[in-house]
Each structure stands twice: as structure tokens, then as C-alpha cells.
Amino acid sequence: MSGIAYPEMLPTLAARLRALTPARVALGRTGVSQPTREQLAFQRCHAQARDAVHARLETAALAAEMEATTGRDVLRLHSAAADRTCYLQRPDLGRALDEPSRVRLSQLQPGPFDLALIVADGLSALAVERHAAPLLCELLRRLEGWRIAPACVVEQGRVAIGDEIGSLLGAEIAVVLIGERPGLSSPDSLGAYITWQPRPGRTDAERNCISNIRAEGLGYADGAGQLASLLAQARRRKMTGVALKLESARALEG
């Protein structure tokens, strides 16, 4: 190592660092490599994350839970991606509704609504099953006076599927709650995407995002608070995306 002496980390420091972050700090080393126990711990988490990606969303149970906690009707929809294998390889299909879902939505009494709430499995059904209902519960309390469309649960859905749904529902803003790609330490992280005037063709720069909603990350009350604040600003400024983000930075961090 060309004369560089890397210090051994004292157990007290290792424990202190580990207490400060969920990151894999203070792993120790054998030579320059990771010790066996850390290597296996990593492999175990990777195995769990792989399993989370391939787990199937129990939509009936989730819809029932959402109906119970929100006291509102919940629609069950499906994207054009038939199954997980298709979903992983064809993002275009995950962004579009399948025909029965599209027909179903077009038969509804269209808005106008101020807001459409959409829950999609994304890459972690686990995240949605754990966090969607309690987060919605917190959010709805903060949205008094908003005209809200019937909530939707979408299987094999991606973020942009909210554009089609929001537009069919006649909603001014769409919020998509979606399972984020599982990390090794976070198989159940939920993201929330907000889009002003949702319609197919919106780009990611036109959305705002709050991510990492889960027990070890952003809590339900904080997440719902940030969401409600962004929604209020989106409605006032009639926009979402990069420009809104800059102005809302203070509100988000305050």
C-alpha cells in the first residue's frame, strides 16, 4: 500500500459510527477485503431485495385496507404489463393502463377533481402494502376542502401511469404513491410523485418527488406534511417540476 498505514478501527468507534447511519460503515477488514460475516450479511440482504422485487401485490387486501382507513371507494386497475417479467423489460407497458382498466375509468363520472390519488406497486409491493394506507390517512387529514377522485390501486404500474389515470379522471393534480426500487437495507421504501395537469407525455422534470417514506426514513406525518405543502403550492402556482421545487425548498426543509 505504498507506505500508507490504514488504522484499525477501535470497537468503540465502530459502534458509534454504526449508530449514526444505516449505511454499512465500520465493517472491519481482512487485508483490504470485507470479513466473512459482512460478506454474508450483504448476500442475505440482496436475496431479500430480489425476493421483494418479484413479490406480487395483494390488491384486494390493500384496496380493502385503504377503504377502511380512508372511508372512500377504491378502484382496482392493472397496467398493460401482464406480469412481472414483462413489467421489468417493458416500462412502456407499465406506464399505460390495460384495456379493461381504461374502459372502467372512462365509464366513471369524470371530474372536475382537484386531486387523483393513485397507488402502484412499482418495484416493491412490500412498500405499498406497508405504507400506502397509513400515509393516505395522514394526507387526507391535511386536504380538507379538496375535491378528491376515487383512489386507484394499480398492479404492475410505473410512475407515469398516473398521467393517464389522472387525465381520464379529470383531475388537476395526480399523486402517485409507488414502491421504489428496493435497496439492500430498504426493501420497503415508498415514493410519492406529484404531477400538475397529468396527461400522457409528461416528463419527470415536470413532477416533484418525495422519496424514502418508510419506518427508518421519512415518517407518515412528515411525508404527508411535505406532500400537502407541495400540493398547496402546486395548486397556487399552477405547476409542478423543477421550477416549483426551487420555490418550495424552504417549505420542504422548514
Binding site: T21, V25, G31, V32, Q34, E38, L184, S186
Partner: peptide, 25 residues
Amino acid sequence: GVPGADDVMLNYQSTSFHDALYLRR
């Protein structure tokens, strides 16, 4: 160089501090 190759914010796996030392060695 990501602690243990596990990015706990971006949710993906990269390379670790150890990996950089391995490659240098």
C-alpha cells in the same frame, strides 16, 4: 466508494471503500 457497496439513499449497489483498496492493491 460507498460504505459496504450499499447506497442506503439511492437504493442500489455500487463499489465499496474496500473495493477501491482491492483494485489499488
